[in-house]
Simulated assay, not measured.
Amino acid sequence: MSGTAPRPVGVPGSVGIVGAGRIGSALARLARRAGLSVTVAGSGSLERTAAAIALGSPGARAGSLDDAAAADVVILAIPLGRYAALAPEALAGRLVVDAMNYWWETDGARPDLDDPLTSTSETVQRHLSASRVVKALNHMSLYELDNLAFPAGHPERRGAAIAGDDPDDVAAVAALVDALGFDPVPAGALADGVRFEPGTEAFGADEDAEEIRDMLDRFWGSQRGRVLRRARGRA
């Protein structure tokens, strides 16, 4: 496969990406560079998605949600406000990476996505009740995805937090993150995804694994963390 590296043992062989925007395209490029088979499902026509990925993610193919869901790992890279439009049956039984974020400017006021008693990934998991959801790749900037992916051991390598409830699923996503060019940083259970959502220190930080780990550890003492602790203490 020209222009791609051999796939390390343990890395999923195929990735489905739901979302053909800038983040989805960047992830598709990284996955192709890592030697993975990539299918991208966009919100427009198949022809429009194919044209978009031909420019930004050569080697990836356009497909339907069902096509993307047939991959070993499915990455959700759409606006979080659209999560309820995802057909749970299409993703049933699949390992799903939630790379989505809540932006009130885009999504509007959404109490379901701004509930201090839960994390947004737990909300996604409740909707996709038959899927296995892991939170990852959401806190990384587009610049980081495009410019700061490096081989293991590179001194400039950045860290990527991962939160999930099943150790095997977290390990699979960690292997994928490593193949994409980032050091995986285990962040606890899916509920701990709240520690690297928008508004946290780790979000958009573009730091190495050690600093990302420190930021996660500092979360509950941060302003955002204290707000959530107070809300949960009153519940």
Rank of each mutant, 00 (worst) to 15 (best):
A175E: 12
E144G: 13
I75G: 07
P58G: 09
S129T: 09
A172N: 01
D166N: 10
A71R: 07
M215V: 01
D192E: 13
L148T: 00
A5V: 10
A179T: 12
T118H: 04
A54M: 01
D146L: 13
V134H: 02
R213H: 10
A51P: 01
R157T: 08
F203M: 12
G188L: 06
L148Y: 06
G63N: 09
N147H: 15
G225R: 04
A54T: 05
V38C: 00
A26N: 06
L76R: 08
S129E: 11
T123P: 00
L91C: 10
W220H: 08
G63C: 11
A172R: 09
V74A: 14
E201D: 15
A70V: 09
V185K: 01
G10W: 12
I75K: 04
A171N: 07
L137M: 15
A71W: 05
W220E: 12
D66S: 15
A149H: 06
D169K: 05
L216H: 03
A62H: 10
V96N: 02
L176F: 14
E197C: 00
T4R: 13
M1V: 12
V177E: 02
V194K: 00
G63L: 05
G108E: 13
S37A: 12
L36K: 04
A152E: 14
E207Y: 13
V18M: 15
G81Y: 08
G153I: 05
A28G: 02
T39V: 15
R158S: 01
E211Q: 15
G159M: 09
D214W: 06
P12Q: 14
E105H: 13
G204H: 08
L228A: 01
G164N: 03
R213T: 11
A209S: 15
A84Y: 11
A99D: 08
G199W: 05
D206A: 13
R32Q: 14
S121A: 06
A149N: 07
D67P: 09
G24N: 08
A60I: 04
T39Y: 03
P6I: 15
R7H: 14
V194E: 06
A70M: 12
R218G: 07
A70Y: 11
G164I: 04
A51H: 01
E211G: 05
L228V: 09
F196M: 12
H139C: 08
P198L: 11
A174K: 07
G35R: 09
A41D: 00
I23C: 02
A52H: 10
L86S: 09
V15H: 01
M140C: 13
R7C: 15
P6S: 10
G233W: 04
P12H: 14
E144I: 03
I23A: 13
R230W: 13
F219S: 02
G164S: 05
A231W: 14
G199Y: 02
E89M: 05
A20N: 10
L95S: 07
T123R: 02
G181T: 12
R110D: 04
A172Y: 01
V177R: 01
L91I: 11
L91G: 03
L142N: 00
L80I: 11
L128T: 04
D183W: 07
S25G: 13
R234V: 15
D114P: 00
V227T: 11
F219T: 04
I53K: 01
L142W: 03
T200Y: 00
G193A: 09
G19R: 06
I75T: 15
E201W: 01
S37F: 10
V73Q: 00
A41E: 03
A202M: 00
A5E: 11
V170K: 03
D107W: 07
V173F: 02
